[in-house]
Nucleic acid binder design. Structure first.
Lengths: 186, 186
DNA sequence: CTGATTTCTTAACAATTGTTAAGAGCATTT
DNA sequence: AAATGCTCTTAACAATTGTTAAGAAATCAG
């Protein structure tokens, strides 16, 4: 069906035809901004093909927080749930095909399938654990070690994502990342 | 009653006498380890008096992730919920008085007061937002700026916590923090 | 109060990262 | 294919941080 967390709701699977229309599919070119920082999010994105990133614009710097690839869900979740201005932006790295679930559709699903709440809790918990690990990695490792860690744990990121974004994800400059890579080679 | 999130459950407040025995109070000296890394957590702590920190031991370094003071709840939450080994440790910074809720008691409350689930979701969400902000701070600011940010947003930490722990929380060495403080003074 | 322990500061030097700038390498567009 | 724009690399220098060590300051235990 969707290849995402919603597949875990059998009742939805059964009545899929009724709910199909809540989802829209779009294709966007690279560098498209899907959510601007400061906007109130109205959509949840599911990556069908391509790559997205969430970022934070601060003092002219574009800081990347996380990368998303096929079959992952992307949203400025807290802001989406509480109708607040999102501090983060969502942008396409590659030309991407996305499935969109709007705020309305989301609420309909939440009303009709209460199991969704548990799944959401799990998603938030898992994302929380992920952020904790990242935070920890920043505290205990230097940039070189963080890059090696990324290379080991998430080689797809290193393979598919332009280095400037990886650098901002690691908290260093592109120049410094280039130097680190150079040293690792030799 | 407890001065924490459980106060938001009126039904519990009413029947408090029945549930009081689920909670225990203990006093511990500074530097007590309340939860070792690698253990499966069985308790949630509420700080009545004193200060705790959660930390991660890695390569001999003791890395601090967060500080907790009066009326805050402390737990290795994900591990507690899923009965997994906790990657983090919980330690006392000051001599502290704590209220303890065991896994049993927690489950009894969860069974008798389903509202707790929503509150838990909120807590996890809020902690998630907090970690996101921290992560962001690491990505966009250098150690000096992070220290100034901490000084502004959380002066209590700077006032009450020994510098070595603040340094490890900022991801730098105590020597470097001392230098930064020296420069700020002048 | 005193001695012992722990924590904090300072210094010197090494290593790393930031900054700026120039050029090479790629990719996209026309 | 040529031109344009974007990305990555390299270099030089400045600034920051890590490391080690020694001593000062603060805290704790008896």
């Amino acid at each position: 069906m969707l290849g995402i967390f919603l597949d875990r709701i059998p009742a939805l699977e059964e009545r899929w035809e009724e709910y199909r229309e809540l989802f829209t599919e779009i294709s966007v070119p690279a560098k498209t901004t899907l959510l601007k920082a400061g906007e109130i999010p109205t959509k949840i994105f599911f990556v069908r093909q391509g790559a997205l990133r969430i970022s934070f614009d601060s003092k002219g710097k574009d800081v990347t927080l996380q990368f998303f690839f096929e079959n992952e869900m992307v949203a400025s979740f807290d802001s989406f749930m509480n109708r607040r201005e999102s501090p983060i932006a969502i942008k396409a790295i590659e030309p991407s095909t996305l499935t969109i679930l709007g705020k309305n559709g989301f609420e309909i699903l939440l009303r009709d399938f209460p199991e969704m709440k548990d799944i959401l809790f799990e998603i938030v918990s898992r994302r929380f654990a992920h952020y904790s690990r990242l935070l920890l990695s920043y505290l205990r490792n230097n940039p070189r070690e963080r890059y090696l860690e990324l290379l080991e744990e998430n080689p797809e990121v290193v393979r598919r994502v332009p280095q400037q974004y990886i650098a901002s994800f690691l908290g260093i400059t592109p120049v410094s990342l280039s130097r680190i890579r150079n040293k690792i080679r030799s």
